[in-house]
Design a protein around this nucleic acid. Structure first.
Lengths: 176, 176
DNA sequence: CGCACCATGTAAGCAGTTACATGATTCG
DNA sequence: CGAATCATGTAACTGCTTACATGGTGCG
């Protein structure tokens, strides 16, 4: 699953500019996919070349002109095709977990800070999800399921850290 | 956090060959970091060049010779340094979530299969973690914390899918 | 007056994946 | 007898990140 495919997905929910697509990535997809301008703009150019999207230049007053992209039938078909052939991977790459595993090589104070930072990040993501859910009144059924899934998993992680942080720090302080 | 750093981490737990390091990645780290031979072998070569590890050729009977790597003091110091400067990111890249969000574009049967596959993957990872925990009697305190965290999060995800799958499929079938 | 937001792009570089290449041993 | 395990590596490719480049508007 690449950025091109995700852009098709965003555009299947309505026309948008590259800048607006980036915002959807940040606001709604950030808990399972991250992408910056450096990958989105080239992806949109390539999709235009392939005929999966069309592009209109929209002049604006008191604002820079923007390029609004629109999903074509061929694009929607290609998106469906890609979804059909995609295995439901779910990969985590967590520096947080690495830091925790090797916590005994760090000052306990630093470990405390790592846990606190992780909790803050979780809280931020929870707020993002709640905001999305309250804003998009009736969206696709999958969106609600995905939001609920993410919420549940984040809450479980938060509660675990809060419940076990004392134990971990005690063990680390005892060993040193 | 790159593969080089992770290799230093594995070697901080004891000498190992590239092949054995790969097994540690698969058995113990797979739920938060994935790496293949194509990144591990070049990483070890680079670490040797940097003096972070030393390498001994060990001939074996009825088995190919292997290169056993050993962490140097400089290597451990470099590892600690890297850990100190690493922000505890926790990024998820989930094709599963993408598929769920756009479930309304797929046949309900396929969605059912996606959820089932995800449940199988979770079950597999849970078994891996339980196996690691039971094998490594008394490891570092961070390892136990990390295993518990991963376990908790996986269980929460599994339970959510099991509780909500019926609702999702009902909604999808109603719309089509 | 400085920062954040709106808006689009390019180019260099890096990390990691995938495929290829080789070959003995052991187990079912 | 075929598949899995043990064992190491290279090379091409891909996909993404980061930094650069530009510039008007609105807010505190």
């Amino acid at each position: 699953m690449d950025v091109k495919t995700l852009c098709l997905g965003v555009l299947s929910m309505g026309d948008a500019s590259g800048y607006e697509i980036k915002k959807v990535f940040e606001d709604s997809f950030s808990h399972f996919y991250v992408a910056g301008f450096g990958s989105i703009y080239p992806a949109l150019a390539e999709l235009t070349r392939l005929g999966h999207v069309t592009c209109s230049n929209i002049e604006q007053e008191k604002r820079p002109a923007k390029k609004v992209y629109h999903l074509t039938d061929a694009g929607l078909q290609a998106f469906r095709q890609t979804l059909s052939g995609t295995h439901p991977h779910h990969r985590v790459r967590s520096d947080f977990m690495v830091l925790v595993v090797f916590a005994h090589l760090l000052p306990p104070q630093r470990v405390e800070q790592i846990l606190a930072t992780r909790l803050e990040d979780i809280e931020r993501q929870l707020k993002l999800i709640d905001h999305c859910v309250s804003e998009n009144g009736q969206s696709a059924p999958g969106t609600a399921f995905a939001a609920g899934f993410a919420r549940t998993v984040l809450l479980a992680g938060r509660d675990y850290i809060e419940a076990q942080r004392g134990e971990l720090l005690k063990a680390l302080r005892e060993k040193s």
